[in-house]
Design a protein around this nucleic acid. Structure first.
Length: 284
RNA sequence: GGCCCAAUAGCUCAGUUGGUAGAGCAGCGGAUUGAAAAUCCGCGUGUCCCUGGUUCGAAUCCGGGUUGGGCCA
């Protein structure tokens, strides 16, 4: 499951991962592998801040724009795709440079998937209609340990826990434990960096990039994909641009809202990567 | 120049009949193995514009001022 040959380049959005990875690729004659949940999709290159054509020409790039906007993706599927690509690169004697900011996706790649079942769309839709207390009560019956451990305020986590129990007939808490046990020793063989910038500087870069995105086609991307639903819709900026297109907010308000959401995302990414102790910190 | 209205957290604003203040947003911190750019949790001392006064007690009532806005000249 682990890919010891690969080098991971992680960090918050707009920190400068792409250019850092390109420099690394040149140095090592390496190949870039996307580690970003939304850059997987075709048609949202601008809004997902995917590398430009020029950047992609500078080194071999993999897993950018490989999914149709109508498709759904998840961490397990990503890790499978990326694992194959990395093996291919390694077998050619090259270095894979995985660059991205999607913590959970990367974690699946570096630590492997737990033995838990993947999400079940129909079951989720059904659970979404039930009140949280109801889901908690059922989880309580099937797996009291998990019911005590989960974030009981977060409907996503509660329903996921219940989903695992219903799908496997086993206890989610026990399945999770076995995975954590197995992955504990993997980190010694991992190689990666966490790119860091001061908050103020990161915010400045987010502001600049958001303005560019809106100037350079993000609005058109969202307009063009109107009516197509899927994972892509949850990208930051989509709901804001939809409000702009609907005339609910001005261009300035739209930009401001995207900046806010992006900053908050960057903070969540930092919180995630801070816990990944195997990453070497690199201040930019 | 005269009259009227506003002034409270970084921003937009609440604040009941006087008992020294609280929402949303922003910001900050955190959780997070199959929706993750998702989802969720925690964090609010601020000259209540200034200044006199009334009162046991004023963001709240009264006078004067300052700033902004509106109306009339």
């Amino acid at each position: 499951m682990v890919n010891p040959g690969a080098i991971y380049v992680c960090g918050a959005t707009a920190v400068g991962k792409t250019s850092h990875a390109l420099a690394l690729a040149r140095e090592l004659a390496g190949e870039i592998v996307n580690g970003d949940a939304y850059q997987l999709f075709r048609g949202i290159e601008t809004i997902s801040a995917a590398p430009s054509e020029e950047e992609k020409a500078a080194a071999p790039h993999h897993l950018f724009g490989v999914l149709e906007p109508g498709e759904d993706c998840n961490a397990g599927r990503y890790a499978e795709m990326a694992g194959e690509v990395i093996s291919g690169i390694t077998s050619r004697g090259k270095t894979a440079i995985v660059v991205g900011g999607s913590g959970l996706y990367l974690k699946f790649l570096t630590h492997g998937a737990s033995p838990l079942p993947k999400g079940d769309k129909a079951l989720r839709e059904e659970m979404e209609k039930r009140p949280l207390e109801d889901l908690l009560a059922e989880l309580e019956k099937l797996d009291p340990v998990e019911a005590a451990q989960v974030d009981r305020c977060n409907p996503r986590y509660v329903s996921r826990a219940l989903e695992i129990c219903l799908l496997t007939g086993e206890k989610a808490s026990e399945l999770r434990d076995s995975w954590e046990e197995k992955t504990r020793s993997l980190e010694a063989s991992l190689n990666g960096v966490w790119l860091i910038r001061e908050r103020e500087e990161l915010h400045r870069r987010i502001g600049i990039r958001t303005r560019q995105m809106l100037d350079e086609g993000a609005i058109g991307e969202v307009a063009k994909l109107d009516g197509i639903s899927g994972t892509w819709e949850k990208a930051i900026g989509v709901k804001e641009i939809r409000r702009l297109l609907a005339g609910e907010i001005s261009r300035e308000e739209c930009e401001e809202l995207i900046v806010f959401a992006t900053r908050q995302y960057a903070k969540r990414q930092e919180t995630w990567f801070r816990r990944e102790k195997w990453l070497k910190r690199v201040e930019l």
